[in-house]
Design a protein around this nucleic acid. Structure first.
Ligand SMILES: [Zn+2]
Ligand SMILES: [Zn+2]
Ligand SMILES: [Zn+2]
Ligand SMILES: [Zn+2]
Lengths: 136, 136
DNA sequence: AGAAACGATGAGAACGATTGTCAAATCGCC
DNA sequence: GGCGATTTGACAATCGTTCTCATCGTTTCT
């Protein structure tokens, strides 16, 4: 349906994908851009943005917004899931909750809503962060 | 604890609060600012931003981020709840789900996370919007 | 009342994330 | 080896939001 032109695996796109694969938490476009620069395979900022958007649209990476609205991306499993994210270090755990899925669908149905989607993120302080006060 | 100086009910603050009370869906700071302007009681944009933040901090309004990261506010009930929002017209329904609350807490606990909070929003197309194709 | 003290306001500058522009580089293919 | 289509990246432009700071309104002395 929303069929795209098959995208080309350019050096830049590969680099962005690898950068994402090499970290385990959510990163912003700027962070990826910096990471790549430091790593010696510079990719233009605009290209990083474009690539991340494509990946997100294609469902290959998850996108979420930090509390101050910044977009951050993460390479995740492809099945539907949610995230448990540490506010301190960003450590992320993918979680699933069939009951929640059912609940959102049914409550939306009760109110006559169709074409339903949802966002659900859980934030907290992970074990190691509650041990060490904060390396700020 | 996070005790603030008791804020003063200035004309501007009252106006912002009334504007929020007069609508039933989520609105951005800019929208509130425009609304007030049109309504004949102009309030500086910076003041609108400041006021909305205060209200949100005080828990008197709910804040959420649109898909493109913009902050939008709504006067809501003061108990913990979530939202069912129409992507077409913005119509909003407050919903509660004790089971979800329990689930998030327990899953976070299982992973050793403490100090847990969460966000959960449901989006869909409301009855009247699925009837009329879209006034775009 | 008059003055100091202090919070509150608003016009405009500053900011930071994101997107747009467009000429130059790269690729697929003949 | 050339050509049109795609992609890139330096840079400008946008846009929501925050900051600055001179000014204003209240409250609190005196
Ligand atoms: Zn994920
Ligand atoms: Zn889900
Ligand atoms: Zn609400
Ligand atoms: Zn909840």
């Amino acid at each position: 349906m929303t069929e795209q032109t098959p995208l080309r695996p350019t050096r830049q796109r590969v680099a962005v994908a690898e950068a994402l694969a090499s970290v385990d938490d959510f990163r912003s476009a700027q962070e990826i851009h910096d990471l790549l620069g430091r790593r010696g395979e510079p990719v233009g900022l605009a290209t990083v943005y474009r690539t991340l958007q494509r990946l997100a649209d294609a469902g290959e990476v998850d996108l979420l917004r930090t509390e101050d609205g910044e977009a951050v991306y993460r390479r995740c499993s492809t099945t539907h899931h949610h995230h448990l994210v540490c506010r301190g270090c960003g450590a992320t755990v993918e979680v699933e909750g069939p009951a929640v899925e059912r609940w959102t669908r049914s409550i939306a149905g009760e109110h006559g809503f169709t074409d339903v989607s949802h966002t659900l993120e859980i934030f907290g302080t992970c074990r190691s962060c509650s041990a060490s006060p904060a390396t700020d």
